[in-house]
Amino acid sequence: MEPTQNPSNRQVLVVEDEHFISELYVRALTRAGYRVTVEVDGQRGLELAKTDRFDIILLDLMVPTITGIEVLRALRSPNAKPLKAKIVITTNLEQREEIRADIEKQADAYLVKAEITPRELVEFLHTIK
């Protein structure tokens, strides 16, 4: 797994309402040289994402105000301005196959948080172009 670009130039937005989890992710990401912004609220996360200054968006599906699915849909809608950011869904929610397939189609990756450690997450992000 080779980094495709220097992580220190990469901006990550973490939309996650579980404080302990975002804390662990921020720790691992900043250690690896990423610059991280955390947002707990779906609506505010969407506004931040629209500024298009992020390279990667980690998006939890169960967040307050509007859900991660709604954020994803808004960002990927045909009317929305295309973003440079890759969207990685990070969730512990279990979906029906069909819904999951639908989300995977719109996002760049889909990860189950319980199945990866923060370090594995960072390694995975290195591989995302």
Partner: peptide, 24 residues
């Protein structure tokens, strides 16, 4: 079951994260 799985996964995510952090 799907709900129970979600509830179980959050603490496990944290446990695995903390173990890794401590290990490092």
């Amino acid at each position: 079951v799907a709900l129970a799985v979600h509830e179980l996964r959050t603490p496990i995510t944290l446990l695995r994260g903390y173990i890794e952090a401590l290990e490092e």
